[in-house]
Design a protein around this nucleic acid. Structure first.
Length: 210
DNA sequence: ACGCAGATCCACT
DNA sequence: GTGGATCTGCGTG
């Protein structure tokens, strides 16, 4: 039934899955219509030993239960008025996951523009930004299996990045430098929808796709 | 109660 | 391009 989904989100390292998500289409069936785009930036969070993870030290509560669900489940959380989208990886009770950080809009762009003040690359170049553009205003999809939720990720096709870049994750305060510096953020090199990308690194000809 | 977070915005250099 | 203010829900005390 959900075997394809679940096998995609386990049986290999979370970092590898995070890289494999780049170039795939993420959609959200919002009340105002279908919205979505190509995933261009992800971050891997590696569970209890990872100082930067919400499941560090085995921390578990109703708020982060999504990380403990079977791979392919949604973990949606809020920070300062914005919502963020994670997809859990690995088997149940192994709290690893991937934060979707940015997308290149391809579906329902008018709807997304109406949901956000800002347009252009600012429309979806951050984890809270694209969720606002999608029109996600609550955590009702938290804990749901991706295939049972208003979200979809197309696992059958993907656009191929020319180059996948890796860097330390954004916004990590971990006192442990090993985890703070670990190259667990992945992005389509040159794509202007990647968060915090310098303008001189924009690939405006191909947006980083092959 | 209180402090702060897997960020964003805006007002300045 | 950078720094400071700020938004609310959780977690700890």
């Amino acid at each position: 039934m959900h075997s394809k989904l679940v096998s995609f989100f386990q049986n290999r390292s979370t970092a590898e899955i995070a890289r494999d998500l780049l170039g795939r289409v993420l959609t959200y069936d919002s009340p105002n219509g279908l919205v979505g785009g190509l995933i261009v930036e992800t971050e891997a969070y590696l569970g209890p030993t990872d100082r930067a993870a919400h499941s560090y030290g085995g921390h578990r509560s109703p708020a982060n239960e999504g990380l403990y669900c079977v791979g392919g489940s949604l973990y949606i959380y809020s920070r300062r008025q914005y919502y963020f989208l994670d997809i859990s990886t690995q088997e149940k009770d192994n709290p690893e996951g991937i934060l979707i950080r940015a997308i290149q809009p391809t579906i329902g762009q008018e709807i997304m523009l109406a949901n956000r003040i800002k347009g252009g690359f600012e429309l979806t170049n951050g984890p809270g930004k694209f969720m606002q553009a999608f029109g996600v205003v609550d955590k009702s999809a938290d804990l749901l299996l991706l295939t049972d939720s208003p979200f979809t990720v197309n696992l059958d096709h993907k656009k191929t990045p020319n180059t996948i870049a890796a860097s330390p994750r954004i916004g990590i305060n971990a006192s442990d430098a090993t985890w703070a510096n670990a190259p667990l953020r992945f992005y389509v090199s040159g794509n202007p929808f990647v968060s915090r990308l310098r303008k001189r690194d924009y690939d405006l000809a191909n947006f980083g796709w092959r």
